[in-house]
Nucleic acid binder design. Structure first.
Lengths: 212, 212
DNA sequence: CCAAATCAAAAACATATGTTCTAATTAACA
DNA sequence: TGTTAATTAGAACATATGTTTTTGATTTGG
């Protein structure tokens, strides 16, 4: 019972498994002889042979004559980006604009996100407190990831500070003539119309995350 | 103008910078001589000397007599876990249970998540299609991350396959006497009562993610 | 069953690479 | 300033490590 074209032999699977675990434990790839020991293989040439096969089949990549230069082609775990949870957003709590110092203060509560989720932007996060945002499909305990901005386009979901009411909420933003319409995402809720001078946009919502 | 106790000399900063970039480009740490070249240092002993200092000060870690065994102590960006998006969940679409082969098929659409979000469990993901789940604060285009399970506790949010209707939905699960109550998360929606034989639990919702 | 391809085993080879030694140079300090 | 510690230089050493070669076993396909 052996492998076909793109398939892996049991030995190759074992090596691949070992590679993953080794690079997980240590922070560097194993040498040929470490693979040999770890997989109970009698010869380095057998390791080399199967590594060539793994490279042919696209599972790994190797540098020529470079020690420990194996890298996993698939499982290239993308690096994560630490995102600061700057605070909680709820009724009545004004939200300070994030500054560089905030982002780099180390005792900040942090969230690890992938580049997919941050979309390559310098973002910060807020924890939603209470159910006041439930109209925007955002529940108590949810985390919203925002890209800092002071302006936005129509239809974008933004964190808006209502100066007169000293309150920050998440709404959809629409510029309509002299006024600005802040639209909850639930059709059963009524929009709020405010004067442009009365609001300050704090960030555009990039992602919302809910942990159960 | 030189370094104090915990500070880094300009050469050590340069080396540290090079380490980060090198391990970012390639997937393995550099050798002493590659550091030498990359930082315009005249001798390997100088590299070794400064690497010792960097290790003393806790910036890196090295293995003895092991090539390319440098790992960054701080910037250990947490690894991400590839999560397969097995399909879409919507009205009328039965959802096959994920198998090992599914997880390893490479042409699967993938999502990169952090360990925080998967909670260390072997999870899979589904894309929500349509607004039929809006009662559970889950919108069209959202991604739900599920832990495979065939049983669950009361109150947990699960993906349930209703056999008779050949339909999979996300609901809160309650075992009540002879029947099972499947409760939407919105109080204005009515629960569904079903026979235990008529359902099959496919997974427990761990996380929900919405990208804007 | 035979021939070709695939895989494994053992040993040897070449060099990539961490380490050490000694001396020179520069910075810190009192 | 002189003395000590920190850093740099160059070279050589020891071995860790990728690679090759040869031989033999095992599988595959007709």
């Amino acid at each position: 019972m052996y492998s076909q074209m793109g398939e892996l032999s049991s030995r190759q699977q074992k090596i691949l498994q070992f590679l993953i675990e080794f690079m997980d434990d240590n922070q560097y790839p194993p040498s040929v002889r470490e693979i040999q020991d770890g997989c109970d293989i009698s010869s380095t040439s057998v390791v080399d042979y199967n590594l060539r096969r793994l490279e042919e089949k696209g599972y790994i990549h190797r540098g020529k004559e470079i020690s420990r230069s194996i890298s996993l082609e698939s499982n290239q775990s993308k690096r994560t980006i630490p995102v600061p949870i700057l605070g909680k957003i709820a009724a009545g709590v004004p939200l300070p604009m994030p500054s560089e110092s905030d982002v780099w203060s180390s005792d900040q509560e942090m969230l690890e996100l992938t580049e997919d989720q941050t979309q390559g932007k310098k973002v910060f996060a807020l924890m939603v407190e209470g159910t006041s945002m439930i109209d925007a499909l955002i529940n108590d305990g949810d985390i919203v990831v925002l890209e800092p901005t002071s302006s936005c386009d129509n239809g974008e979901m933004v964190a808006v500070w209502l100066k007169s009411e000293n309150e920050t909420t998440l709404k959809k933003f629409f510029h309509e003539g002299e006024k600005i319409r802040l639209q909850p995402m639930n059709a059963t809720m009524s929009p709020i119309y405010v004067d442009p001078a009365n609001i300050e946009i704090q960030g555009r919502v990039v992602t919302a995350i809910r942990s159960m």
